[in-house]
């Protein structure tokens, strides 16, 4: 497991372009526009969404990067923690809603 998730790998991100440079460059432009340019959403709002999602997808690189983005865009620990709770609650809710499927199956098999 020690070979996975090395901090320095974040700096090597661009190496994934080697197999498909055109696709990587399209990704980069899209990623930059979507996450790092203010639009209808402010940079702070985008950073908080990114932070929440980083936790939902459990990506340590993204957590590093979006924590920094959140701080630089003016979010504080309270806002960032609330964003993580939104992600955590959504994950829990998504898990729990499957209980309806369980209940339906239970009911179909029970007297």
């Amino acid at each position: 497991m020690t070979d996975y998730y090395k901090k320095k790998d974040l700096q090597r991100f661009s190496e994934v372009s080697e197999g498909a440079p055109d696709l990587y460059s399209k990704f980069q432009a899209w990623y930059g526009e979507a996450t790092s340019k203010p639009g209808a959403l402010s940079l702070r709002e985008k950073a908080l969404i990114g932070l929440a999602l980083s936790h939902a997808i459990q990506c340590p690189y993204c957590i590093d990067s979006f924590t920094q983005k959140c701080l630089e865009s003016g979010a504080d620990l309270e806002q960032m923690t609330e964003a993580v709770h939104v992600a955590a609650a959504m994950k829990a809710g998504a898990c729990l809603i499957h209980g309806v499927q369980m209940k339906d199956k239970h009911d179909s098999l029970s007297l």
Binding site: P38, S42, L43, R44, Q68, L71, E72, S73, G74, D76
Partner: peptide, 19 residues
């Protein structure tokens, strides 16, 4: 006057001002 609370740069001034 706003300044960051640690080892990071300040964000866009106009956006911070609005907030």
């Amino acid at each position: 006057v706003y300044n960051p609370g640690g080892a990071y740069l300040p964000g866009p001034q106009a956006e911070l001002e609005q907030e």
